[in-house]
């Protein structure tokens, strides 16, 4: 690969479970990407400022607290108000299928539930990185459909 992708992996909100986020961060690292991990309990604003200052192309959000319906769209809005429309956002954690459509509408391009093979996340990253309009505010309605 020519240049490694810069990817922020973040834990918004109050839940303290980061095993999933760490597994994803490790998977991305082992695939040759540069992963910036934010640590626990970040606000939407803190996450977006990290994405901005680190010039990340992707942002992965992890939530196991049930607050994804509130937190993930907040992050998307903050990204757009900072002018970071071209950042590609994906999420994971305990996120019921019936909640996902609203998240896709907010601009998130993939949601990965428990049991997702890590290879599927890499396939998503690979495919989305080849698109030039998969960013959160670029209006492309495409999203990845995960089995898990």
């Amino acid at each position: 690969m020519a240049q490694p992708l810069r990817i922020v992996v973040a834990k918004p909100g109050l839940d303290g479970h980061d095993r999933g986020a760490k597994v994803v961060a490790r998977t991305l690292r082992d695939a040759g990407h540069e992963v910036i991990y934010t640590g626990l309990r970040r606000t939407a604003k803190q996450i977006v400022e990290t994405v901005r200052d680190e010039d990340a192309r992707f942002l992965g959000l992890s939530s196991l607290s049930g607050a994804h319906g509130h937190l993930f769209p907040r992050v998307c809005e903050e990204l757009m108000s900072e002018g970071l429309d071209d950042v590609i956002v994906f999420g994971g954690g305990i996120i019921p299928h019936e909640d996902r459509e609203a998240l896709f509408e907010a601009g998130i391009k993939a949601i990965f539930g428990p049991g997702t093979p890590t290879s599927e996340i890499l396939e998503f990253i690979d495919q989305a990185s080849k698109m030039d309009d998969a960013g959160v505010g670029q209006g492309n309605e495409w999203h990845w459909t995960s089995k898990a």
């Binding site: 690969m1 490694p4 961060a25 490790r26 991305l28 690292r29 082992d30 695939a31 040759g32 990407h33 540069e34 992963v35 910036i36 991990y37 934010t38 640590g39 803190q46 400022e49 990290t50 200052d53």
Partner: peptide
């Protein structure tokens, strides 16, 4: 450091930074 094997890296210095917030 970047991994000499994959070329990837886990950049974790921000976790300990409070001044940025």
């Amino acid at each position: 450091p970047s991994s000499p094997r994959s070329g990837g890296a886990l950049l974790g210095d921000r976790v300990r930074m409070t001044s940025v917030d």
